[in-house]
């Protein structure tokens, strides 16, 4: 009888420890999930800021850069379609196009010394450069957190909790510019031709 009672106590003890562990791991996952969501919002804040800055920049360089109407048009178009984009994948693609047209505009602006001397334009350029960087760093931070969240869901035995409560892994940002994605062609002759 005493032995039975002892076993029962041990079982209850084990159950309590397991339950405590589960609660602890579950809370960890929830906290990571919220951090990831917050990091995602931070990217949005910066994207919004970029959308707001672009019309100002275009307005102040329009006069000087008459011969680059084509580039200016493209920036405006890219900006408008980025604003209108819905959904993560679509938005990511449009924002990347906007980044590319903007960097083209920045490169062209180098040819206009009067533009660079204009304090207003320089200020706007600095704000946009910084916003570009902030978008990049916000994505980097999001990726870091998302990786931690995904790893936390996949490692054993935490994955049992993640599955039981239907946590989903989140997607990471990837480089979408084709030139950056290109992998150097290395043929090691392992695969059959």
């Amino acid at each position: 009888m005493a032995a039975f009672g002892g076993c029962l106590l041990v079982l209850i003890g084990v159950a309590v420890v397991v339950a405590l562990w589960a609660v602890f791991r579950y809370n960890n996952l929830v906290s990571l999930k919220n951090q990831v969501a917050n990091a995602w919002k931070q990217i949005d804040v910066q994207l919004k800021r970029r959308h707001d800055l672009i019309p100002n920049l275009i307005a102040s360089v329009k006069g000087e850069m008459q011969f680059e109407q084509d580039t200016l048009e493209k920036v405006i178009q890219a900006r408008n379609s980025a604003v209108a984009a819905r959904g993560v994948a679509d938005s990511a693609e449009k924002e990347n196009q906007l980044t590319q047209t903007l960097s083209r505009l920045f490169a062209l602006a180098e040819n206009y010394p009067t533009l660079k001397a204009n304090e207003n334009v320089r200020g706007l350029m600095e704000e946009l450069t910084s916003t570009e960087n902030k978008i990049g760093f916000a994505r980097q931070f999001y990726n870091d957190l998302a990786t931690r969240f995904n790893t936390a869901q996949q490692i054993f035995p935490d994955n049992l909790i993640a599955q039981a409560f239907k946590f989903q892994t989140v997607e990471l940002f990837e480089i979408t510019a084709p030139a950056e994605r290109e992998v150097p062609a290395v043929d090691l002759n392992i695969r059959p031709k």
Partner: peptide
């Protein structure tokens, strides 16, 4: 001051990068 403005931006960028 434009240079200090840039510094302010750079610090904000790093704050974002480090959370």
């Amino acid at each position: 001051d434009p240079k200090q403005r840039a510094l302010d931006n750079v610090v904000e960028e790093m704050a974002i990068a480090s959370g």
